[in-house]
Amino acid sequence: MAELSPASQDQSSRPRRFGLGMTDARFGLLLSLPVAAILILLNLYPFLYSFWLALRDIDLRFGIDEFTGLDNFRKTLESQDVRDAMWRTVKYSVQVTVYSTLLGLGMAILLNEKFHGRTLLTALILLPWAVSTYAAGIVWRFLLSTETGLFPAVLFRLGITDRPPNLMNIDTALTWIAIAHTWHIAPLGVFFMLATLQVIPQDLYRVGRIDKLNAIGRFRHVTLPYLKAPLLIVLILNTISAVNVFDLIYFTTAGGPGAATRVMTYEVYTTAFLNLRLGLGAAEAWLLLILVILVTLAYVRVLYRKEKKISTGEAAA
């Protein structure tokens, strides 16, 4: 069975024309211009300014301000602390992206079914996303605390451990924060994907049943083609959210134990805002930015390739 994507439902391939003789693409561009202009203004200046900072040794606390060229970038790349923080960021981002995307997908599929209490469950699932990151951090710190936390107490009371365990130890702290992060952001993905699931024509599922597709087959050949675009958007958002994590770590472990949860944003915060070494901090932030850009480009490339494949398939058909 061929993939039944939303694109294949489009009956017209001719560009539509609006007033003033504009194509819809040009009209769309025109509508985007004000937002684009504001975004450029708000982002371009800090973007260039941070690069200028990165070329200087600026130490506010000691009144140092000297042009040092690319020295901050060299120090950043040579720093073992930065390399360790970067590796932790990658590990953390992979965990958060995988957990939150799978959880979001699962919950979206569940909420797409008709059952009693669905509305209430939808509201409940949305709640973690509505909670501030500060509150989420505090709540999870208390949930995981060995002395006063719910999870260790439950494990202890059920007799799984002989005393309330320390869940946030040097080996597991990063994973627990990733779980807390997943709890916080997964609802966003749920609503992206649920919105798409609800517009999939039910006829396609009936066709699938006629073609003797089981549930997995229907998911793969009917649901997934529709979900590809929102799934990729959710992946990008979740990944960027994970790479940029700061407040959740700040309010739960403050980078510890040892340096177990000191990810790249925490490293930048320490250098730029605790130590007030703005130049070095800016260079570290640029490294983080490059990581975010690379990941986003990779996702966009995947998305673009898929779309190209789809449109090529349509042309061939």
Partner: peptide, 21 residues
């Protein structure tokens, strides 16, 4: 000494002792 202290905030450290453990 327990490992859990490394995740306590400053207030949590005082509260940790207040648990009586």
């Amino acid at each position: 000494h327990p490992e859990s202290s490394f995740n306590m905030s400053e207030g949590g450290y005082v509260d940790g002792f207040a648990t009586g453990d």
